[in-house]
Design a protein around this nucleic acid. Structure first.
Lengths: 99, 99
DNA sequence: CTGTTAATATAGGACAACCTATATATTTAT
DNA sequence: ATAAATATATAGGTTGTCCTATATTAACAG
């Protein structure tokens, strides 16, 4: 299928780190919050592979409680989200100053 | 090669539309401005295929003058950049309110 | 206990965003 | 005229972001 407009994918892992920098969350809670912002909730096949990748990079760590896994940033995760946020603002800062 | 941090690719086409919404620019000028913001200038193989894609979607149009092609938004390009900016702000607005 | 639902997980595929070449055309300098 | 530099273009490859399945496990209701 051809996209009509410009592609708006990207920065999923950054957005996950950003959300976790504010509050510890489960995969489902993350998906719900992303859905609230994007208009459409990402599917399981989007969110869980992303969480796995961040876990393998040791930027986040999860603790299971029943069927849920609650994620939080590790120390390098906190460092990384600071770095990434600076980069993000340098790239897109002016997009916000005018809305 | 494994990336250490989180991936920060994405929104190239949006960023190009955004820059063109402010000023008519050539491919080279766009690459320079992206380089200024990102810290590294994107290569020719990144920028020109992106411009070709946006041209084929009729979101931008270019006019050649010598060796340079100067790009500007079309009418649907202007519409698209408004739509995309709203979406972008809804997703990432709070990232900026705290820096 | 058994069936359903909720949360997590993985496989496999499409596509944009990046790269490294390599090529062509125009302009500028020698 | 010729060489070098500049701007544009395309081919081909990797990776992250998305999807649609399909499967597993824990909680919950009957």
């Amino acid at each position: 299928m051809k996209r009509e407009g410009c592609d708006m994918r990207g920065f999923l892992s950054f957005q996950v780190l950003w959300l976790l920098s504010r509050k510890r969350m489960t995969g489902e809670a993350l998906a719900r919050e992303l859905g609230r912002r994007r208009g459409e909730k990402p599917k399981a096949g989007t969110i869980y592979p992303a969480l796995k990748d961040l876990r393998e990079k040791e930027l986040i760590e999860g603790s299971r409680s029943g069927k849920e896994v609650s994620y939080a940033l590790t120390q390098s995760g906190r460092k990384e989200v600071r770095r990434a946020t600076l980069y993000f603002c340098r790239c897109f800062g002016d997009v916000f100053q005018e809305s």
